[in-house]
């Protein structure tokens, strides 16, 4: 029979694991890696479950941190080949957007984990520099520099994208 702690944890996993997996998948771009990342975070969370007041923010932060730090030492993924982009102009806007998304997806996967985590937190989760630094337990200056480097790399990999000047400077 489950203890109350185990029952509560199981219910949380039942309700929220899928959402956490989506976050992990956005970071890793790989289903198995995402499952591994989430299970690692869940295991650590369970080990101190009684002390955690709000599990989901705690888990999300752990997933980002684990990805940005612990995963650094793992073997880097092979560089993803970038397909030849279609012409930007023309009346096939939808197809162009689809191609750009594919390009951006591959370009994101080519970034180092910390830069990828910073960009996803800043531009997908829409967190401020301060909030991103808090999630990743690092300095705000580190967030800014990692974002800047990540954006520069994306610009290089996806030059077809509409890059606004303020974005290149970094958002605060």
């Amino acid at each position: 029979m489950d203890t109350p702690e185990e029952a509560e944890f199981s219910a949380f996993v039942e309700q929220r694991a899928h959402a956490l997996l989506k976050t992990a998948y956005a970071l890793t771009g790989d289903r198995h890696a995402a499952e591994d990342l989430v299970q690692t975070a869940l295991a650590k969370a369970f080990s101190r479950w009684r002390r955690i007041d709000e599990p989901e923010p705690y888990l999300r932060r752990m997933i980002y941190n684990e990805f940005a730090s612990g995963w650094r030492s793992r073997r880097r993924q092979a560089e993803v080949s970038v397909p030849e982009p279609p012409e930007r102009a023309g009346n096939r806007a939808m197809e162009v957007d689809t191609a750009l998304r594919l390009l951006l997806r591959d370009a994101l996967r080519a970034l180092p984990p910390r830069q990828r985590a910073v960009l996803i937190l800043r531009y997908f989760e829409d967190l401020s520099v301060e909030e991103t630094a808090a999630v990743l337990s690092c300095r705000q200056g580190t967030v800014a520099s990692q974002a800047s480097r990540g954006l520069a790399k994306l610009r290089e990999l996806v030059p077809q994208l509409d890059w606004s000047p303020d974005l290149v400077e970094g958002r605060h």
């Binding site: 996993v13 694991a17 899928h18 997996l21 499952e35 295991a43």
Partner: peptide
Amino acid sequence: MTAPRAGLAARSMARG
């Protein structure tokens, strides 16, 4: 990303 595989909670608790 599809739903997690069965047994994720149990595996996580064992590791925890």
